[in-house]
Simulated assay, not measured.
Amino acid sequence: MTADKAVRAFAGIMVLLSVALTYWVSPWFVLLTLFVGANLLQSAFTGFCPAEMFFRKMGLK
């Protein structure tokens, strides 16, 4: 698996998790969904993604 695919999988998991937490725990977890979306958007324009840096340090190409 490449770091790019790992980032997309991680973002998808985080969005699904935050939606579930928003539904069952607290409406404030919608902020996590907004944070993930904003991070994806800024990384599309800047190329800077902390999650990708982390996955590269973990050994993904």
Rank of each mutant, 00 (worst) to 15 (best):
G37V: 15
P27Q: 06
V25S: 07
G59H: 04
F29L: 08
F29H: 13
L40E: 08
S26Q: 02
T22E: 06
R56T: 15
E52N: 04
S43M: 10
M14C: 01
T2H: 02
D4A: 09
K57L: 15
L16E: 00
M58L: 15
P27L: 09
L21P: 02
G37Q: 07
R56H: 13
D4L: 05
V30L: 15
S43Y: 11
T33M: 11
S43V: 07
V15I: 15
L60G: 00
R56Y: 13
V30D: 06
K61N: 03
Q42W: 12
G59Q: 05
M14T: 00
V15A: 12
G37P: 06
W28K: 05
Y23R: 11
V36I: 15
Y23T: 12
L17N: 09
R8G: 00
A3S: 11
L16D: 00
F29N: 09
N39D: 11
F45R: 06
F48H: 12
L16F: 01
A38L: 14
V30E: 10
N39I: 05
M14W: 00
S18Y: 01
L41I: 10
F48W: 11
P27S: 07
A44W: 15
F55S: 08
A20Y: 10
L21G: 04
T22I: 05
F10N: 04
L17M: 12
G59W: 05
M1G: 03
T46H: 10
W24E: 08
A38E: 07
A3I: 05
G12E: 02
W28G: 09
A20N: 06
R56L: 14
Q42T: 13
I13G: 05
G59S: 04
S18D: 01
F45K: 04
V19D: 02
S43P: 04
F10D: 06
L60C: 01
L16C: 00
W24I: 07
A6E: 01
